[in-house]
Write a protein that binds this DNA or RNA. Sequence first.
RNA 1: GCGGGUGUAGCUCAUCUGGUUAGAGCGCCGGGUUGUGGUUCCGGAGGUAGUGGGUUCGAUCCCCAUCACUCGCCCCA
Length: 425
Amino acid sequence: MALSTQPYKGARDFYPEDKRLQKYMFNTMRKVVERFGYEEYDAPILESLELYAAKSGEEIVNEQTYTFTDRGDRKVAIRPEMTPTVSRMVAAKRQELPYPLRWYSIPNLWRYERPQRGRLREHWQLNVDVFGLKGLEAEHELILVADAILQEFKAPRSTYEIKLNSRQLMDDIFKDYLKVDKQQAHDLAKLIDRMHKTDAKVFKETIQEITKSQPVYDSLIDLLHAKQVRDLPAELQKHDSLKELEKLHKLLQASGLTNTVFDITLMRGFDYYTDIVFEVFDTHPDNNRSMFGGGRYDGLVALFGVEPVPTVGFGMGDVTLQNFLETHKLLPEIASETDLYVVLVGDVYEQAQPALKELRAKGLNLAVDSTGRKTDKQIKAADKKGLQKVVFIGEQELADQKFTLKDLKTGQTESLTLEQLVNHL
RNA sequence: GCGGGUGUAGCUCAUCUGGUUAGAGCGCCGGGUUGUGGUUCCGGAGGUAGUGGGUUCGAUCCCCAUCACUCGCCCCA
């Protein structure tokens, strides 16, 4: 039985052309978040299982986390998300860190689930967090960062929509406005979260079943029709979170983000969110899904026994981002890291070394064809690698110290000294 | 974890209700004479039909199992 060449289920091999694309995406993200003053951190892929048990939500720990017991009998998890880790890191140095803290990371994360479009078992996720800002300047900044990343990828604002809501608002609506109990609130939240995917009739019937009260049902249906903050009942207009949402919306509009909307059905899966949450949606019908999201989670750092630190963060997955860029045809051709393919003509491997050394010293990335095969084969190899520039080095060139540079795209050749060659590229 | 679909050459797919040596396009390799690719021409390699069972005189085709991929659900990025 031959060994399988397939990568592990739900995980990807990155061949050089795939890796080039990944590097392009990550470098673009890095460039943008660093422009906003965020600094990169990292951490181990393994964490103690307890880290996730506390606050991530039931499902992700019980069913979606890769776990094992190590030789020292410790329960270990492969990180399914980065937020608990970064909270742990901040808590560990709570007193000595300079706030506001702007941190980012691009970790690979593992979740045990059924792979499908936009969702694999291993993915990379840009995590951007700001620690130590109580005001909604934090939310504003992070949404600007998310938007700036998509702008850097040249995505028109019509291709995505930024949805805003508040977890606090929803909690208070359930508790004080609708006056339903905890279990009902939880069930309703889950249901509302998938309202757009549920059949309208089934949706309403399920609400009936959960609320068991006609007035509550009517009020809730009314709320769900709200398209903007102003549509909500006057009684709720006084709610702090709603005022904040309105302010945030104005701030974003003033920043040129014309594609932000209030969406009362936005819930977000993790239990640790405490107030404003947001998600960026792809508006394309073929890929209508949440690309990334985040929100405020003021309580997480305090779980480590230190004073709380107000925090806002978001995550952006590489798979969903790539789907988005592909769907909107925003992925450019990415050139190889190699600048120049060296065709050796005749038996000149040894004599060519000084010239090769000089070219490398001047910063060119060279791939030398040291096979000794015919020149046409060598050129074909360069072409197949997707390289555009080829230089010929043979007896003649070495004698004259003039080298023939060929552009495989235009077919033109030029005879150049090493100096000129370097300047040319 | 649950439900549906698919699985034939490296890739995309044929093989007409089970019937001789399973085909094509693209790709790949070699050649059109020795220092210039991409076009073109000629030639060639490559498949135990995902895997294992079963039904049948006979299975790529029907049945079962299993694995993989894929779509949806759950959940989420």
